[in-house]
Design a protein around this nucleic acid. Structure first.
Lengths: 338, 338
DNA sequence: TTGTAAGCGTTATCAA
DNA sequence: TTGATAACGCTTACAA
């Protein structure tokens, strides 16, 4: 093991192994059509020299970059505390285990000129992209459709086309589950704190909710907009209580908002679940630790992200576009808040 | 604007601009020694063709990759809910604004073969690295010292040497601040829930704590180990109450642990701050929303991360190693838990 | 100021 | 199974 001032190249490996550069290359890449002796010699040389292929050189000829992008077009500060996002990164990273693909992080920045991310994506620096936390107006759908870049959305895009792959939980059904549970519990003055209406998850959860309330003949006039975050949930709860003091059931479209809402309820002396039943959405770690523990709709985020990554890897490797979006079933997790 | 099946190359730009490839290259890279006419022609061609330089080709010759790594050697699931980590990513990403550097994410994976990250770092695929959430035994310090790869630790490494750059908050002083506040409040049966002792932040906070207690002649027998996470804090609190039921003051080395501890205190009928005063560490968003709002030691994480990134960029650009570690002052944020 | 030409470290083709 | 050899797209002496 020498201590080179400059990284060893394939040429050196070949030389010390006593073979040609081509043979060395083949031995390193899967070892097809290479004799056992040559293979062994190359392996030894690689180990001895501490050789790692130069990614740039390889990428230049293979036209693959061996890296994929995780795009998070979420400009605001919420990212700081969003466990969903941390989970997404973790999930992608985990799904990349085994491959030697790298994960490049592309955050939108609050002040940036629009199109930076799109430009980067178009310029062939990554083999594919996963888009999380997608908003209506971040122009990613059209842009990705225009490129041929393999991409998978986590969360249904606004204008699904056969070419736009995505993985999502059935948010409409999730909204229904929440509504049904509250109706079953005998609650009749129902309110909801919605997610952002420029995200399909926010829209869909509300759709399912409204559907069930309509069918049950229950008014759905008590609706306040939230942003999935805790403070937003608390603020929305204040407004709800001010306008609809007789509320006896609440669906918050995220656990974080549910937690914020429950704090406000407690401050106003409303007991959960005796006075008001609460259902959340996500089933993140915190849901089990709120007081009372939160009944919530489970969002199989880890599975979603893993599926999305697997789809993307397939897409990158095989180029086949004949996937269908994968929509996972949500599930009600009963705890103590209903 | 044509619609090429393959990305435009520098050659095409040069051709449509009517200049040589070298001139085009110079025009694109800063425009040194390029006539205004040539510059304009190239600019037009670039815009027209939608040209973006091929990063691999460029990297091959410049020997720079224009990307830096964020290393998170944290194998367990804590990442999922750790707001510190999310903040770190955000901060690095923000500090990269303006540059066209990309951020490559390197998570440790629970099951991976050891050394994967080190190997990647050594092989010249990134121009530098920021290391967050560093543990004693992840062998990153020696490895990075051995390479010539510019690197900055967020959080003091275990064996600082002049070549190991880092940015940190003064955790020892933070521990002191917490201890002093509790002593000032007249508390005498003091307990602490420590951070992981294989991280310098965990060790240092405890050091400062012990120091003040020693000086004040207060016993520091009530010590339980935590892991910075909420559940760990709750579990530690249970143990503390079992062994030291007379506790009247608590320092938890993270806000999350403080929150977990306060829940357990509440379950045991101990009021905060009447029966037990609590001081946390970090001052993350949640600290203001616990009940009661948490008095805590402010950890200037955003500043830390930005400083670290700036140092790294300097290091990468100028190669100068004559930096000194930057240690920021913590600050006590008074709320209602003392 | 411009252009020619020589690489950068790989992989891919093809003849041996 | 092997090894020359030709790309891949770019930057950078160096010469003009």
């Amino acid at each position: 093991m020498s201590s080179p001032t400059t990284a060893p190249t394939l040429d050196e490996v070949a030389r010390t192994a006593g073979v040609s550069r081509s043979t060395a290359s083949r031995a390193i890449n899967g070892g097809d059509r290479v004799s056992p002796e040559a293979q062994a010699a190359v392996d030894a040389a690689v180990a001895d020299l501490g050789y790692t292929p130069n990614r740039a050189a390889r990428s230049l000829v293979t036209r693959r970059t061996d890296s994929i992008a995780l795009v998070v077009p979420e400009p605001d500060e919420r990212i700081l505390t969003d466990p969903f996002l941390a989970g997404t990164m973790r999930g992608v990273s985990a799904a990349l285990g085994g491959t030697d693909l790298q994960l490049v992080l592309l955050f939108a920045r609050p002040d940036e000129q629009p199109g930076r991310i799109v430009r980067y994506l178009r310029s062939g620096h990554v083999d594919g992209a996963i888009v999380a936390s997608h908003h209506r107006d971040d122009e990613l759908e059209e842009a990705l459709l225009a490129t041929r870049l393999p991409a998978v959305f986590v969360g249904r895009p606004f204008h699904p086309t056969p070419d736009l792959l995505y993985v999502d939980v059935d948010n409409v059904e999730g909204g229904r589950l929440a509504a049904r549970r509250l109706v079953e519990a005998g609650r009749r003055r129902l309110a909801t704190i919605t997610g952002p209406q420029d995200m399909t998850a926010g829209v869909d959860r509300l759709t399912g909710w409204n559907e069930v309330l309509d069918a049950a003949g229950i008014a759905h006039d008590a609706v306040e907009a939230g942003d999935f975050a805790l403070a937003g949930g608390a603020a929305a709860m204040e407004r709800l209580l001010a306008e609809h003091p007789d509320i006896d059931g609440l669906f918050a479209a995220s656990d974080l908002m549910a937690e914020g809402a429950m704090r406000v309820l407690a401050q106003h002396g409303r007991r959960v679940p005796q006075d008001v039943s609460v259902v959340g959405f996500d089933d993140l770690a915190t849901a089990a630790t709120t007081s009372p523990p939160l009944t919530t709709v489970r969002n199989p985020m880890i599975t979603m992200v893993r599926d999305a990554t697997d789809m993307l890897l397939d897409l990158v490797a095989n180029g086949s576009k004949d996937f269908t979006p994968r929509v996972l079933a949500p599930e009600l997790v009963e705890r103590a808040s209903v």
